[in-house]
Amino acid sequence: MVNILANPARFLRLAGAVLPWCWAAAAVTGGVGLWLAVFVSPADYQQGDSVRIMYIHVPAAWMALAAYTLVAVFSAVALVWKHPLAHIVAGAAVPLGAGFTAICLVTGMLWGKTSWGTWWVWDARLTSVLVLFFLYLGLIALRGAFDDAERGNRAAALLALVGFVNIPIIKFSVDWWATLHQPASVLRIGGPAIHPSMLWPLLTMAVAFMAYFAALLILSVRAEIAGRKLQALLVAAGRNEPAADGLQGEAR
């Protein structure tokens, strides 16, 4: 399984086959999900129509956590198996995860103002999610801070693994400590506490976010591989030597 990452050409072929399905899934579930969220789903018995922010906020929060988990897993694979592609996948997921975290924070502030009466409080849930956002920014900065790309990759992978302790903290902060943020509504013991008429739009939007993330991740990995190939060709051309990676076999 891990060895798919050893062969970029095979990975690209596989990703190319999956990509159209990701776009199709994102378009269909995104369209249907938005329609359900805005027009079909009912207003909440306490919060009225402001509950519709949930259909953006919660999928974004889930993707922020999922993307970070993916970054940590691929960082571990990169450090242990040294497949260059694992670093590329981890690096591609970081800006996407940062985007989802930003959506989660901003929509959460808007929702918090309407329901709690404040934009922000420093409770354990909100603070740990803000830490996640800074972790993402740190990973972006760290990768760019080294002249030697390999060292930057390794430093970022280590930070990603250290930062992973934050993920269970975010998830369980609402159970471990007294927070203003309410406990989990969907992934909880005893089943979802959301009425099906609101749960289904939420899950549809979650699938849309996930498919969109997968599509952008594949494209981002493809762009990075092309960029490295280009870099290698330019270096080879600069040394006035034939390209080494077989792209231009007939040029030698």
């Binding site: 929702w111 309407t114 493809r222 960029g227």
Partner: peptide, 28 residues
């Protein structure tokens, strides 16, 4: 509150795609 939340999400999601596609187009 609802519409700015949706608008911000659309902006960020669109920006993510724009950035990835621009890099892909440049290198490929």
């Amino acid at each position: 509150y609802v519409w700015p939340a949706f608008a911000f999400a659309a902006l960020v999601l669109g920006g993510m795609a724009w950035r990835v596609l621009a890099r892909l187009r440049a290198s490929e």
